[in-house]
Design a protein around this nucleic acid. Sequence first.
RNA 1: GCCAGCUUAGCUCAGUUGGUCAGAGCAGGUGAUUUGUAAUCACCAGGUCGUCGGUUCGAAUCCGACAGCUGGCUCCA
Length: 579
Amino acid sequence: MGTRTSLDTQSALYAMRHSAAHVMAAAVCRLYGDVKLDIGPPTEAGFYYDFDLSDRLTPEDFARIEEEMAKIVEENAPFERIEITRAEATTMLEEMGQPYKVERLADIPEGETITLYRCGDFTDLCRGPHVESTGNVKSYKLLSVAGSYFRGRETNPMLQRIYGTACENDKQLRVQLKRMEEAKKRDHRRIGRDLDLFSIQDSVGGGLVHWHPRGGRIRALIEEYWKREHLANGYSLVYTPHVGQAQLWKTSGHLELYKEMMYAPMEFDDTEYFIKPMNCPFHIQIYKSHKRSYRELPIRYAELGAVYRYEKAGVLHGLFRVRGFTQDDAHIFCTPETVEDEIREVARFANRMWKAFGFEEITAYLATKPAKATGDDSLWTQATDSLEKALQAEGIAYEVDPGGGAFYGPKIDLKVRDCIGREWQMSTVQFDFNLPERFDLAYVGSDGETHRPYMVHRALLGSLERFFGVLIEHHAGAFPLWLAPEQVRVSPLTDDENTYAAEVAAQLEEDFRVTVDTRSERIGAKIRAAREMKVPYQLIVGPKEVEAGTVAVRGLHDGDLGTMTLADFASKLRDEMET
RNA sequence: GCCAGCUUAGCUCAGUUGGUCAGAGCAGGUGAUUUGUAAUCACCAGGUCGUCGGUUCGAAUCCGACAGCUGGCUCCA
């Protein structure tokens, strides 16, 4: 999930959360000796503060820290802004025994005003702003402790981070905590188990996903849609091997730059083979399988390619971070003349695809040339311009991330917002100036000369596994009708209606995914069961429906929809599938 | 990988300070019931309490190592 904070730095909530972080830090300083402070910013959901202290913090310590915070709030000490020179600040922080702060101070650019904030006995190097006094910090709660490397680098010391949240008032705090509860209920790992969608099993290994029949059904629907759309948009579907010789990965540069992410080689016939972490070299091999003319370009190869990457055990997380996944990968080879159109088409395609899956809000990040980069400036300029123009032409809101591109080319990352407001980085469109060189890609132009094609990597859904996880959380397991693994469940009132129920199911089966619940349970229990499995429609058939040849329809979202004929019901479903 | 926490039946959890503590509900199986819009009843089966060591007369309960998971850090699809 994106951690970029969208909280306005000038907002009152920002200042309050920031102040809450200070109050917490002050409390920790009072309760523990020898506290070395790092930083404590507000976040979208609350705030945190990083400390280095000899005591090990656990959630059991929260109560006393919160108590001490309450005292500090009670004291209502004003936040005092102090401007200070760099030299004074350095001396002071050194005297205070705050090595991390000294390092942070060094980060502040020359010429910028250096400020301290003091409240009561607690002084911190800080840009502010803060609330007037500690009494303004009202409703807060400490949430979790976590380790966190200083500056996020694992060669640095591990600090202890306390996460908390703070709101304008108790009511807001309750809303905030409720929201966190809701997010927990949507957790795809829980829903995945409850709805029998997928599993990850110790006996097989971490980060290796099993798609169960219900999840598999959804995946098949996603893939069908994906393939249909790609074929309709000028892509060719290709299929490539799961392993390739070491030489291939040497040429591609992966063994040089990406080796720690690749699984150990297997050897046969005196040759090393590696499981693929990416599909690109294979697509390139297809491109290179014969001499290309400019008349063939653009060439667009798409593949749902399974790749394997070694991820550290600690980072694995449900479907979001796995070790084996299926990229919805494509590589576009084109000439400089058409590259802009190509990018535009990709942006348009991405937009359409996200809407189809129920995601409305898309934002983009345009990452430009980093300090260390391959390829001529003119290449970078044209590529970056084409990315930017595509975003503008498609009306996609974007931010520029200067220097954020890969060394081999600029890129656009698309983030989609889910229905509880979280942003997920999903699609990526990346220029690659590196691989065409390494593999010596070429085409013959209209001038009869050999030219180097542009190469663009692009994934829309990202990976099917991760996308499925986001899809589950976005819909909280209640998938739209076209994706529901079980669309209709027929529930006979008593065993006497079983035959009629089977007939109803048989008539629907041709067009829809239908089951019949013939257990001799009460109808209330059958309704509950269908709801728990998030079945979009349930047809209740009792003597009245048998008599009239109708069905009583119950919608997952709308409840009792009354009685109708099967034909009417079927057309209702078709209408819903259209939209 | 690192920091912290957690790990009792498929799931959610009880198990006071180590001494009939191996339990409950749901799910599953069997039988009864034939039910009109969010859980019918009864019975049965299920765990060497994550694994391996240790302390003890005795360990789910204490200690250690390891594994897995959770929350983070880093990275990314």
